[in-house]
Design a protein around this nucleic acid. Structure first.
Lengths: 217, 217
DNA sequence: CGGGGATTTGATGCGCCTCAAGCTCCGTGG
DNA sequence: CCACGGAGCTTGAGGCGCATCAAATCCCCG
């Protein structure tokens, strides 16, 4: 399926019938606080999966950040896959645990780090997930990043400026180049996180044929 | 098995061979940032399960908060349970999804809420999990709470005082009584969280015989 | 060339961390 | 039985970081 920028893929409270994988473009999952502020749960880049729910309804909405192509996989089909192929079931299990661990890791980081480190970490994360060696073209706005990191857009912008002034990145609008290799390890991450990230990158081959190379969250 | 207060159940990087369920007392899972500060991932109360890992090693340590009794369940046994009983496998799957959702919910809350709301939410959470109708005996210190909520111990203490001054709680040391019913819904939670909490409380019966009524995280 | 959203920059205030004392409670030894 | 000590907790003062309000600038696109 195909979705234009800002298009709604599913809304919060919609029946959760499918799981999705991004083919191209980018997707954000989001919800709103009671006082109306937006929370972005995560961004989903090509190859990554989203939409798996515990209950019958989606807990958050999903929107295309920019024009995006997706593959949809029905719940029943996923269930069938897991039932008939033990390795597929194992892969899903493992993928879900990874998703949980990443969320926990993000929690600790966002709770402790300052604004500059958050933005730096975000850029490194995007670079790694896109397989980039430093140059990245951000699909999302500063507002999106702010709502994802729990900062104000102004603070995000100031963090970009600070990183540029320090010579750690070069950027113009949404084009960013990560300059400093040393910059690639952020303080305040929990011990062992580096080792874990290493393990994550060498993703085990997955038997989830149409949904291969699952990058959770 | 039995463990005294502050006793180590397993250490970070230990081989992850078992899953545990708390029978009595309380357990904390924790790790340390590179600069030495302590991060408490979660508290585990009677009936709750912890220790399930994606990899061969534990990502964080587990310690008894106070004297505690635990049940240990080996990985192989868990695997066998899942293989032979489809309903058990489903329950584990569901439990893991719940764990993920709770972590995500906590992430958004801790990123947005102020110190008083964090502490208030923490107290309500503990009260709900212990099945208390208001009176709770905290097993953990203010320092533990601080490291769990990402606050300083002083700020946690001030939050307790502020809640007391507002007439929302009564407390003396680690004994707390939640006074205001209206206080039981905290702002800044994401929409639908109330409905979700409702669903969580009516926990579906689990076929995990020795590890029944699984409360994740 | 004009318009409007996205981004940047500036000024100000509040909230939490840090450093620093007191205070409470409880166990221990005199 | 009471003085002592120490850990846990509370309270106070000051400073830094981020949110907020405000305004200027960039840049894309018609």
């Amino acid at each position: 399926m195909q979705t234009a920028g800002d298009g709604v893929i599913y809304a919060q409270e919609d029946p959760a019938q499918s799981v999705y994988q991004v083919i191209s473009g980018a997707v954000r999952t989001l919800s709103h606080t009671d006082d109306g502020r937006r929370i972005i749960h995560g961004f989903h880049l090509p190859g990554e999966i989203f939409g798996l729910e515990r209950e019958k309804l989606h807990l958050c909405s999903a929107e295309a950040v920019c024009d995006a192509r997706l593959v949809r996989c029905g719940r029943a089909r996923l269930q069938a896959l897991a039932d008939e192929d033990l390795r597929a079931a194992e892969a899903m299990w493992w993928w879900l645990l990874l998703s949980r661990d990443r969320t926990a890791e993000r929690l600790h980081f966002l709770t402790r780090a300052n604004a500059i480190d958050k933005v730096a970490d975000f850029l490194i994360d995007i670079a790694q997930r896109t397989g980039s060696d430093g140059r990245i073209e951000l699909p999302m706005s500063r507002y999106d990043i702010a709502d994802y990191l729990g900062l104000s857009p102004e603070t995000v912008s100031r963090a970009f400026s600070a990183l540029r002034d320090k010579g750690l990145i070069a950027c113009r609008g949404r084009t960013v180049v990560i300059l400093e290799a040393g910059f690639r390890r952020i303080p305040a991450r929990t011990r062992g996180a580096a080792r874990q990230a290493e393990a994550d990158r060498s993703l085990r081959p997955s038997p989830l044929a149409p949904l291969a190379v699952a990058q959770p969250q």
